[in-house]
Amino acid sequence: MGGLYLVKKWFLAEVLALHMLINISESALCLNVPDVVTMEQTSSATVTISSSSAVNQSTVIQLNVTFSSKNNYSSIITLPQQVLLPEKATSVNFTVLAHDVGQVTAHLLSNNTDLNRIRFIVIHSNVLSVVSQVIGWIYFLAWSVSFYPQAWENWRRKSVVGLNFDYLAFNLTGFIAYSVFNIGLFWIPYIKEEFLQKNPSGINPVNANDVFFSLHALLFCVIYVSQAALYERGGQTVSWTARLLLLIGWTFALISLFVAVAQKITWLEYLYYFSYIKLAVTLIKYVPQAYMNYRRQSTKGWSIGNVLLDFTGGVFSILQMIIQSYNNDEWKLVFGDPTKFGLGLFSVAFDIVFMTQHYCLYRQPQQYEAILEQQDD
């Protein structure tokens, strides 16, 4: 009888514990808050905290500041230390006052449980923010469309003579590396969390248009290579120098992969290695094409439309980063994505070289047809 009593007691205790766990699970808060709240200096914003269901009792939600771009976060914004979500309520509002440009990250806590995170960004001007977005789309479109003129030129001529194969090989490798970097930092949650831990300000340098651009560029690199395989190429091949450099780059990527798997470096660091590969490729990929133009004393086969659009994209890319940095008082934005900054800077430099070659050094003389005048006898 004593044993049966103990079994019953144990069973009732288990049922009670399970019931408590279910109640705790049901009462757990699931809050919806904006990820980012952006304000101008000396303005205010109303932030809404909403619950997926009405709470059974009044709940105190603490706002714990975990990052501030300045030593004292109160010099950037004023926000309450805690907010009360009343019983039976599904939402509550609180007001944030903006003072100076900067960034503050606050975690919402209830019963010592981390519920959510809000990033407050105070900028100089909303107008500048809109201008920055417009500029971003301009350079995105210019860079994206810049791949079409060369593909059209190759198709029209049914020839890739004048298009350097080392450039094609470097470009293909560069955009593979850039796509890996962008996809990882934009789409993989684990990598994004690593980035936020390393950069508490939470400024992810990769946007959706960066991902699309790199994948779109990679597609056209494949199209160029396909055209080089199908059309007249004048006996061109990828040089041994280019093959050696590409072998070094991909060997570095492979070794880094094993180092990351062994947890000697983080996966975020491994992704940044791909961005450095892209940057290195950008530094050298135009050299073979510029030298070929010099050796041939001609830019025929190398589309100037590609160059002009690439130049436009590079200039606007750098301009956007400067505007964003000023608007946020955060000049790390310029160097936070070395690939993006380097891509703009070095592309612009080489585009100037190509425009000089095309319009000044190797201008094709105007062709005239000889006209024979008949003289009267």
Rank of each mutant, 00 (worst) to 15 (best):
Y5M: 15
F11E: 12
A13L: 15
E14C: 14
I22A: 14
E26S: 15
V33M: 08
V33Q: 05
S50H: 09
S50F: 09
S52R: 11
A54Y: 13
Q57C: 07
I61P: 02
L63W: 06
L63Y: 06
L63G: 03
T66P: 04
N71I: 10
S74D: 14
I76Y: 06
T78E: 13
L79K: 03
L79C: 04
L84C: 05
P86S: 10
D100R: 10
L109T: 00
N112S: 13
T113S: 14
H124E: 11
L128C: 08
Y139H: 07
L141V: 15
F147T: 01
Q150I: 00
N154Q: 08
S159Q: 07
G162L: 00
N171H: 07
N182V: 11
G184M: 09
L185T: 01
Q197H: 12
K198Q: 12
S201N: 14
N207V: 09
N207Y: 08
D210Q: 04
L215K: 05
L218F: 11
F220E: 02
C221K: 00
V225E: 07
S226C: 14
Q227K: 04
Q227L: 01
A229K: 10
G235T: 03
W240K: 14
R243T: 07
L245W: 05
I248H: 09
T251Y: 09
S256Q: 02
V259T: 08
Y272S: 02
S275C: 11
I277E: 00
I284K: 02
K285D: 03
P288L: 07
Q289G: 00
Y291V: 12
W302G: 03
G305I: 06
D310T: 02
F311Y: 09
F316C: 05
S317K: 01
S317V: 10
I322E: 00
I322K: 02
I322F: 11
Y326R: 11
W331L: 01
L333C: 06
T339C: 11
F341E: 08
L343C: 08
I352V: 13
T356R: 11
A370T: 11
I371H: 09
D376F: 12
D376R: 15
D376E: 15
